[in-house]
Design a binder for these strands. Structure first.
Lengths: 150, 150
DNA sequence: GGGAAAAAGTGGTTTCTAGTGGTTTTTTGT
DNA sequence: ACAAAAAACCACTAGAAACCACTTTTTCCC
């Protein structure tokens, strides 16, 4: 089971290629042989999600099975299924981010890769820092969260 | 079983022809030998649906069997049965979208093809992006969705 | 602590095919 | 039978993907 932690600043070149940090590459190679799935994040933050392929394959049927007469469910499907792209690392350990995803998450040159345990998040650096600053934490917590002792 | 994922920007030429992306073409050729059915989407978003023929044939009897004293059911039948068109790819891997469907979904030159697992959606690019931005996520989620851990 | 070697990250070049547009032939309708 | 429209055919161009070479950083050993 994968376990992505920490964050990395990375650069994307003009062709949309980005080098996966060596530490992460190592983690990837022995959880999924470098086979990953990149997709869009469904909540209001426009970032991308990086899943090891097995992780994604566990999730995919659950998304497909949602009742799609419901509007919220259709939205999730269009975002996550509609953006999911299997990728492999090239000979230099880079991935090529498809134009669709690049524009969805407004990715430019400077990016941030954020470990989230079983997956990672890929942000535009600018958006990441402005999200950090905004931090409008006005939603109420679920009970599991209130019970945490950090 | 087909498994369409990801999204592609495509152009339709003046004759209403559009080139299916190579990746998708591959997927199509071994799930249905390139034989697809194009029809209208029944919910509020005006886009087209692209089914591999076997998928459509599984779905069609279910639509035909709906109790058509009900208004919503009649609507679904008129839209989906009434627009269904079998199509084959030409020698260059393109399909010709019938004028009726073109105008239903308000398709102009720039289009988006969105993978949705067993089917795909075909949108006017303009409408797709404005749908993405609207984000009126005010419908309540079905319980299966609230339980998801993405 | 300094130097060398290996690894990681970056950029450029070439090749190939996907995508696009035009042309010809066939069909249909008048 | 002729004309108009649609479908099949063919040729070209531009963009993507694979390949390759270089620079920079880190690590290990002396």
């Amino acid at each position: 089971m994968s376990n992505f932690l920490g964050s990395h600043a990375i650069n994307m070149d003009a062709k949309g290629r980005l080098a996966i940090p060596a530490k992460v590459r190592e983690e990837l190679s022995h959880t999924c042989g470098g086979r990953i799935v990149l997709t869009a994040n469904a909540d209001e933050e426009r970032c991308l999600l990086v899943y090891p392929e097995p992780q994604w394959e566990a999730l995919r049927p659950q998304i497909e099975a949602l009742p799609n007469m419901n509007k919220a469910a259709r939205r999730l499907q269009r975002l996550m299924l509609g953006h999911a792209t299997p990728l492999e690392l090239d000979s230099a350990g880079r991935i090529l981010v498809p134009p669709t995803l690049r524009s969805y998450a407004r990715l430019e040159k400077k990016l941030m890769l954020i470990g989230q345990g079983k997956k990672m998040e890929l942000w535009s650096e600018e958006r990441w820092f402005s999200w950090l600053d905004d931090a409008d934490n006005e939603d109420e917590m679920p009970p599991e969260m209130e019970a945490l002792s950090l």
